[in-house]
Design a protein around this nucleic acid. Structure first.
Lengths: 239, 239
DNA sequence: CGCGTCCTTGACACCAGTCAAGCGTTGTGG
DNA sequence: CCACAACGCTTGACTGGTGTCAAGGACGCG
């Protein structure tokens, strides 16, 4: 189910150990929060199906999304070190999540070397994604920000086998999209309309279609190297 | 010298192990780059004195700063997992850095449990700082962005004993400041002038003075919880 | 049928980018 | 010792991307 084989070559035992972690799963609904900002001992989650996001609340009441969590991503596997959660985790669609004990994570880290490496790799990838988001949101026009996010999500979803041809699921509301790339919902709409008018995307009923990926990538200067997925992108396409 | 005691309570042996890492140090100048974007096997650095930053180059030639590296911070201790550097590391002032072998880091991680935890904690803190930057740069006015950055840097410098009374060193050019908070150099200037006019800061000759910290923090809604420094902030003030 | 949620569009105001010019300081070489 | 260049800071004028407010439309659901 989960394909973090990008970060390390996993032996069968490691793979089994990782799968073992996802033993206790439960289904969750859109808008359900998995972790509340300020929680003292937040649970560790792994999202198996659906999208989630990390968000923070501003003093003016607005909610902002810092990163998107796609199937196969973990929430904050090491947060126990920090003492409290500095952000919330909320589902963006219905889905399926696994709850994991901190002690179990620790056990895997200690005993399964390459599984530990895989976990570690995935947290480094989060870093890289955050840095790219910082650049994207800070220094590009709204249209390009959105285009870039689409490219990134497509690439990440591709790595876990969730892109079918030229399309993939897109559960995001325009308001949520705006919160993720730091623009207002109204402007998110205008930008989407512009991308549609240019034939760069086709978005209807929660499905994103990218007819010409190269053109979209060129439009927003998307280079996927920061995702560090290259090495195993084909081998990982099947579990 | 380095006080990452915030992340874990360090035994003498762990402390010694960490200090041992910084054995090979060399002095570096402002503008010197420690790692170039695209390097295949980037060296691991720990900044002992001076400020550095991670930056990326945009296709239009502009340089953007994603995070600031202060004395005691490490560069990318785990980058070997990723294969290549997706950003550059450049000095913002003259300083002193230690180069560390990846193998040495690995040895410490394997043998010194709480030192490993401290390293881990510091990489989680980087995550948290990046998320906060995302919010800061995306959803606040320029003046408040700068004010928030000042508050953050003051807090981080305080944790390593580099704040003297109401002032601390400020090597940043207005252009660099702009690159760090995603505004133009001209606007960075205007915002600094505004903060000065309000009596919130006093910045001259590379020294930042904050006469009334509470007022500045209130102005930009700064809450330091995301830095996760609270628990040891007094005990760590002396090595 | 009526309500809620999300999408769409218009008008207007404003923050911030760009271009451009001038000033002050530092450092270097004649 | 002075001239000059390099760099960083400061300020003005103008433009434009984006936020906000507001109203209406499309769709699904009870």
């Amino acid at each position: 189910m989960r394909k973090m084989a990008h970060g390390a070559t996993l032996a069968e035992a490691d793979r089994a150990a990782l799968i073992h972690l996802t033993r206790h799963m439960r289904s969750v609904e859109r808008r359900q929060t998995l972790t509340e900002e300020g929680d003292l001992n937040p649970r560790i989650h792994i999202v198996l199906e659906g999208w989630a996001c990390r968000s923070k609340l501003l003093s003016n009441g607005k909610r902002l999304i810092t990163d998107l969590i796609l199937p196969g991503d973990a929430c904050h596997p090491h947060t126990n070190l920090l003492g409290h959660a500095d952000h919330s985790v909320t589902m963006l669609s219905d889905g399926l999540v696994a709850e994991v004990e901190a002690a179990e994570i620790a056990r895997v880290l200690a005993h399964q070397a390459s599984a530990a490496q895989a976990l570690h790799w995935s947290s480094l990838q989060v870093d890289a994604i955050l840095r790219q988001a910082l650049i994207n949101n800070g220094h590009r026009l709204a249209d390009a920000r959105i285009a870039h996010l689409i490219c990134e999500l497509r690439t990440r979803l591709l790595a876990v086998g969730l892109v079918k041809g030229d399309r993939f699921a897109w559960p995001l509301t325009q308001e949520e999209l705006g919160q993720a790339v730091a623009i207002s919902n109204v402007h998110a709409n205008r930008s989407l309309m512009a991308l549609r008018a240019d034939g760069l995307i086709d978005l209807t009923t929660r499905v994103m279609v990218v007819p010409d990926l190269a053109r979209l990538a060129a439009y927003c200067d998307f280079r996927p190297d920061y995702l560090h997925l290259s090495k195993g992108i084909d081998s990982a396409l099947r579990t």
